[in-house]
Design a protein around this nucleic acid. Structure first.
Lengths: 217, 217, 217, 217
DNA sequence: AATGAATGAGCATTCATTCAT
DNA sequence: TATGAATGAATGCTCATTCAT
């Protein structure tokens, strides 16, 4: 039963299986996912009770277990959503035409901007990985690795072409850069002076600068 | 069983109140801190029970509550240990003589190497911040901010001297770099090919490269 | 899927209200009763969820609540079915012509054979009695007592005629014998070497032997 | 922790680890086992909540989980207690000197009397077997089988000696007789006219009578 | 310095049942 | 005749913590 609901995940905002009752006009499933995302980001997965989630979503526990198999399932869905979004966007930038440096720059700006726009997702992603069931964790990591490799291939392409320095492993560059991205959740505040895109441009600048071929002395 | 941090913590009490019993020769307090560090890093703070900690340390619950006020107190001690260590080391490098670029480089290599050597501490630090009591969290953040500012001042010094580019805020540079450092816990494995210091040198290289003044066109 | 009892139950409604859908060609009501019988016998009444029953029957919960008032109602129907069957059969043998010893023997063989053929019913009967609503339980017990008395009267008839020993209360003989019958569910396996009728003949032999008048010494 | 308590099972009535608080003077562990036995017999294992058990024993849930691993563990202990008692007693009678018929008679009387004296245990034994974890169930069945075989060997001994008829398998005789014994819980009431030993003597009489060699005609 | 029995609040989850459609 | 979303009460169990000894 919950599995059926689970399958419907992709279309969750397509709306309208429920008429909206107490708590909002959005379908129950989406409300639950939204409430869970906010709470998991704020307090952590383990410190958030199912009771708090359903209260925040304005539904009953039974309703939650109608749409999701478990609290873990909720987390799993959030991971799936993040992975889907990020993969889609990277693909778009990596496959674009033009010189590799530009594509890396654009992808870097975008991933920062997207991360800032979905800061809750990002906080959850790196803080709650170890709460996933081993199997799920493996799947998430595999998907994440594909993402990493996609970006790394872009860097490696630049290195082969000579527009990026080649004396640092491309994998390490990616870990270096994405460390910065993933920690946005630790310090960035929406009410800060710098908009997400501005941060993205700075980060992308720093990345490209760090990759400039070392000047001869 | 005994971790480096654990040994320090025990010493802090100015010597052996316990004669070591089942589970190791080290004083009880240190054993508890060591076991807690390992378990918090592996499973997270919330998913680790006091029972598991005392079992891993080979003591009883009563003994734990003799040395620590609460489970939170254990976490607080771990944070204090990390902050003390990192601040000490940064001070050493920042206060060293010589040109600013060299000091930044050395400090950067060191923080990476130290993080890699105490990877469990690092994992805990960024994953469990939100479990601290608000007051403690505030104190930890303040201390952390001082650390950040110390490093930022180094960068700003280089910018004023003209050896670092000045078109990117020094604060942002520090967040950029420490994001990379803090995420070492997400991918670095002790059994990997690259020793901690090597990673440190690559990271420091990238940092300095990203700070080189932008060439005139 | 279809058990003998299930087929009878369906017929009771005087013919097919449902055209059979996913899961079998049999009417829904019978499928539900069959599935419930098997599951109650395997796992016990309390450990079987309505969800499991409807899944096994290939219908939805709503359908079940259309045909039955409650989960208890399902159990009540199973009891009614068993009682009807056993009473019918005993009546047939008790009312037959011929000497009382032969009638007791035949009835004894038959109840064993019938029990073995409907072992699930038997398992449920003695394991789940206490789950019935007090009122229903009272009714079931009353019906059961009538059955017991019918058999006891047969024994008493033999005692009066002098073909059975009279130094043991007829009621006790019946409890003695039916204990053996009711516990068939605890040890008899359909794949065992001995067919139900063979067990029945042995049991009937033992019963009649135990009733032989005590020889004078 | 609960395991430690579990080991102490045998000495549970040796008394005095607790000073008796609300609810009685008996140690907590024994009170819990007593309350559970009564309730499981009355309402069945599944229909009895842990809350009801601890309320009846006058302790808190936490205390129960200090002594027992789970509700299942409680049931397991009850089974262990029954098996221990019955095996002990059968051994005593089977190993006694004298002719086999007398030993069978005495053992039969005793098992009925003992069953009647511990009717709750008996009700639980045959009603809740399927609630045991598969592993435990296997162990219980194995122990039970040894009991059955001990009794069967006694019957077989009599058949070899010619004092019992040999045309019915000894195993079947044992199943026949113990069926009667196990179903005492279904009809016997302590307030009934017949004391346990009297029922035992009647049952033993019936058993021996059913085993008399068939007279030649 | 250390024990271990006991607490009690809280947790994730299950489940029979209802009801608008 | 049948669906499936939703309910709400109850369940077994965990856990940080206390306290007399």
């Amino acid at each position: 039963m919950a599995r059926e609901g689970g399958r419907r995940a992709a279309g969750e905002e397509a709306g309208g299986t429920t008429r909206g009752r107490a708590g909002g006009d959005e379908p129950v499933r989406g409300r639950l996912l939204g409430a869970a995302t906010r709470l998991f980001a704020d307090r952590g997965f383990e410190s958030t009770s199912v009771q708090e989630i359903v209260a925040a979503a304005g539904v009953t526990k039974g309703a939650m277990y109608h749409y999701f198999d478990s609290k873990d399932d909720l987390l799993r869905e959030i991971y799936a959503r993040v992975l889907r979004l990020q993969t889609e966007r990277l693909d778009r930038f990596a496959d674009a035409p033009g010189p590799v440096a530009g594509r890396v720059y654009d992808a870097a700006v975008d991933v920062v901007a997207t991360t800032v726009e979905n800061l809750d997702d990002s906080k959850i992603f790196f803080r709650s990985m170890h709460q996933l069931a081993p199997e799920t964790r493996k799947a998430v990591r595999a998907e994440r690795r594909r993402y990493h490799e996609r970006f790394r291939d872009l860097v490696a392409e630049g290195q082969r072409e000579g527009v990026f320095r080649a004396d640092v492993p491309a994998d390490l560059v990616v870990d270096f850069f994405f460390g910065s991205v993933h920690h946005l959740g630790s310090w960035y505040h929406a009410d800060g002076a710098l908009p997400g895109v501005a941060v993205g441009r700075h980060f992308a600048d720093l990345l490209l600068a760090s990759l400039r071929p070392v000047p001869e002395t």
